[in-house]
Design a protein around this nucleic acid. Structure first.
Lengths: 339, 339
DNA sequence: CTGAAAGCGCTTACAG
DNA sequence: CTGAAAGCGCTTACAG
């Protein structure tokens, strides 16, 4: 069974292929009656234009890549879904790729973009190093970093970004713990490397302690890998110290931490307080519900989608959007004294 | 900046384009020294073949579509990640699409496949109706249904599937509740329509009651939409009845249900027992940990990936794989009496 | 407003 | 083992 092509349509409609092409691309200079005739034939013959041929002539595709760096979280999967809805309305398709390691990330991304001939690339997670600038220039297509830690050394005109203020949000959360009377505060973070959200949240932890004139104890800081299980184990370590509150830089780790406390027979927040980061829906349904810093998932996805579309369609200037987080007051932080 | 093409490589290497093409496609009849020379030039000039042109000649792409039907769960996002890893090793790319409604699903999928010129299509979720047979024939590419309720009327040679035994697993779970002494068992299900996993699990609920000679009360059955919140509200309704145990056909709804019980001041499982379905990691970290039926996430993704690759590469016969579930004994089911 | 023709960058018989 | 040439299905100046 031969698939039908533009020539078949032209013949069937009694017009030239150029005219069919013009109709296909919604170009203005076609007589209404001709257009109608062509559309009718297209519909009757169930014709779908061959994208490979179109792309070959146009020297580009309609593929937008999503390059997921590091751990794939519930948070990202929601963001991806929103992005796909946004861009598919403009006939773009989403090509997905997961990249585990943090080394050579941009190099792998450039390869991905070249191989798939992407017209736009969205990064989810990870961090931007100053050494990445060269790759960014090589990419030569609109790039959006979502939920990524950026680098001030890199020319902002080379990329777009949609982020939150990780430092500020984490600092705010820490201040809530401190203002609630906690003086010995543990941290569950990750060791993703320097330029990552974890680092920003860790810095906020240190700064908050410093500003509150609280001393920093190395044994109050533990390392996980964003998984629930790692949060559980990190908490087991922290429970050997005398911390009264723990800040986990991701909700999933906080959930693991809560379980560890429960399994030790402790009551949250009476025996130990807990603060998360992400604002996952499930966190609000924990028992007790997790106090956490909420990221705007839908808004993140919608903004990423609209930024890349603007770049692709209107070729506007690059944009750098910082979204607001909100503090979700759950039931896992105990007020130690009057503030 | 002109992108370099196969002609440039041919010229630079002092060979014909056919020879370059042969090297590119790893064809045998090329002298080793020639091949080496060509590869060197390709590397030096950073040449990446244009997929649109290749696809145009080959009359096909290397795009495998994943068509997600209905609610996008944590479960699916893990499966997608595994599939991507599997197929990208063979140079296939994943094109993602989310489809919300349950009506005209296959019609939309056919359009998706034609537009993107997919060489293979993976469905996640949903159900297969007998009226879909025509669309399946139209598709004319390898199709794999993952976690879908199939239909015995449809010719099994038209598609592949990787599923679990929803009825059996749910029946087993119900029997656990019944054997634990529960006689009044509520259900939180969804109304996805007849051919869906929810329906299978609902049927198992009814059959288990019947086999145990327990009567069926309409008010024991509530409807959610797979979301945590819907589970919460469904449970509020069930708590107005005299049920002693509740089976939620998805973990997320069970999590919502547990919260509703807690918020009413009830203790799980002492006051009310709870059984989930999915085996999400987070369920095991609930307090108390959720008793649930566990789906093999990784295995599901790996099997889907390998089945579609087999079809694409070796053009083997269609396969229908049924994966085992396992019962996860958490702490949410109370033993009412000795069994 | 419309059509004939060139050409995008590949692959693949075909001839040698 | 290798190269010249045709052709995949489109789009786009160009001419009318």
């Amino acid at each position: 069974m031969k698939t039908i092509n533009i020539k078949d349509i032209a013949k069937a409609a009694g017009v030239g292929v150029s005219t069919v092409s013009r109709v296909l691309n919604d170009q203005p200079d076609v007589k209404a009656s001709t257009k109608e005739k062509v559309l009718k034939v297209i519909d009757e013959l169930n014709y779908v234009p061959n994208n490979s041929a179109r792309n070959l002539k146009r020297h580009k595709t309609n593929h937008i890549g999503i390059f997921v760096i590091g751990e794939y979280s519930t948070f990202f999967s929601k963001v991806i879904q929103t992005i796909e809805k946004e861009v598919s309305s403009q006939k773009y398709s989403i090509v997905l790729h997961f990249h585990k390691e943090n080394v050579k990330t941009l190099e792998a991304a450039v390869e991905f973009a070249l191989e798939k001939r992407l017209v736009g690339l969205i990064f989810l997670g990870g961090g931007l190093l100053s050494s990445d600038e060269g790759y960014l220039k090589q990419l030569n297509i609109p790039v959006v970093f979502g939920s990524t830690v950026l680098n001030d050394d890199i020319d902002k005109r080379l990329y777009n970004s949609v982020t939150i203020n990780n430092f500020g949000a984490a600092y705010h959360g820490m201040m809530h713990l401190i203002n609630s009377g906690h003086r010995k505060i543990g941290l569950i973070t990750t060791n993703d490397g320097k330029d990552n959200v974890a680092e920003k949240r860790y810095q906020a932890y240190l700064k908050a302690l410093e500003d509150a004139k609280l001393s920093h104890h190395a044994e109050y800081v533990t390392i996980g890998d964003y998984s629930i299980e790692s949060g559980y184990h990190a908490m087991e370590e922290l429970l050997k110290t005398d911390v009264t509150a723990v800040f986990a830089i991701a909700d999933l780790m906080a959930i693991g931490a809560m379980k560890a406390a429960h399994d030790k027979g402790l009551v949250v927040p009476n025996d130990i307080s807990l603060l998360g980061f992400d604002g996952l829906e499930v966190s609000k349904y924990m028992n007790p519900s997790l106090t956490t810093i909420e990221q705007p998932t839908d808004s993140m996805g919608m903004n990423i989608g609209s930024v890349i579309l603007k770049q692709l369609i209107d070729e506007e200037e690059t944009e750098h959007i910082v979204l607001d987080t909100s503090f979700y007051k759950g039931q896992t932080v105990k007020e130690m004294k009057e503030v």
